[in-house]
């Protein structure tokens, strides 16, 4: 089947994409920047945030571009009033209920779509809650959680198969949770940090980053990223070491965070506790 191509139009312009490509791929191929929040490149599209919706001729409701396969002859519109309105409202609904201050592109998109998250007033319900700090590896700040499902999918059947976390509760009260809300040390968590890897809003954060931010010594302008290979077993995972050169008064180098390239053919961005959190031994 490979090698077949699908011809569609995006905003009236003809575009050809490979079979199996999504509407989002087609939009990208047409040079159109489509906002995405819940969409991740290492887990199956859940299409739950709905910010990537587009208008497809013949479809009553708007269509999530991230998950819908492009079909021959599809007429895709990305800038209709309906699309702009839906995107604006997703930004307003999320912006009025979730802390998006560390989420990439949100300011730019708010401006692009005219979103005003404050319009629901100061009493609008939010998901604000205390940060969960229950271990030395990473913290969970569900005030920043948009429920993209990527962490639960990475923890569960798409990557780690640990199932330490799941979506619990429902509606606006739905949240990512361990069983009965127990702390991570009492859960099945194996601290692979693959949830942090996929989190789009920094709701999941290295303890080092959280502590430095809390102390006011997090300095992204003094950080570099270097790819190397983990030392702790024969799998050969690529580690991207985020090194801050100077923390506060100390001018030494410090590995403040470890990520892994999602394009790695070895583990597609996934690591284990040793690779993710075991780097501290190089620091005095």
């Amino acid at each position: 089947m490979s090698g077949h191509e699908v011809a569609v139009t995006v905003d009236g312009r003809p575009v050809v994409v490979p079979e199996g490509a999504t509407v989002l791929d087609a939009c990208t191929a047409a040079g159109i920047d489509t906002p995405t929040l819940c969409f991740g490149d290492t887990v199956a599209a859940r299409n739950v945030c709905r910010i990537c919706v587009v208008d497809v001729a013949g479809s009553r409701a708007l269509v999530p571009s991230c998950s819908r396969p492009a079909e021959p002859g599809m007429e895709i519109a990305t800038d209709t009033p309906r699309v702009r309105h839906a995107r604006r409202m997703v930004l307003e609904l999320l912006g009025s209920s979730v802390d998006l201050s560390l989420t990439d592109h949100v300011e730019e998109w708010n401006a692009r779509y005219g979103a005003d998250p404050d319009r629901f007033g100061p009493d609008a319900a939010t998901v604000a809650q205390p940060v969960k700090v229950d271990n030395d590896c990473f913290v969970r700040d569900y005030s920043r959680c948009i429920l993209c499902y990527q962490c639960t999918d990475a923890c569960g059947e798409q990557w780690q198969h640990t199932f330490a976390i799941a979506i619990a509760g429902r509606g606006f009260d739905a949240t990512v949770s361990t069983e009965h809300g127990v702390g991570l040390p009492d859960s099945a968590c194996v601290y692979c940090g693959n949830c942090i890897e996929v989190c789009p809003t920094d709701a999941l954060m290295f303890r080092t980053e959280f502590d430095l931010r809390t102390m006011g010594t997090w300095a992204s302008e003094r950080q570099t990223r270097t790819d190397t290979i983990c030392a702790f077993c024969g799998v050969g995972c690529t580690l991207t070491l985020h090194v801050q050169h100077g923390v506060g008064d100390d001018d030494g180098d410090r590995i403040v965070k470890v990520t892994s390239p999602h394009s790695s053919s070895v583990t597609a961005g996934n690591l284990c506790i040793k690779g993710r959190f075991g780097a501290g031994h190089v620091h005095p």
Partner: peptide, 15 residues
């Protein structure tokens, strides 16, 4: 009754 999965319904029904 919103299941909470998608943003328009999860937050929209609250607003």
């Amino acid at each position: 009754e919103s299941c909470g999965q998608c943003v328009p319904c999860r937050v929209g029904t609250v607003r």
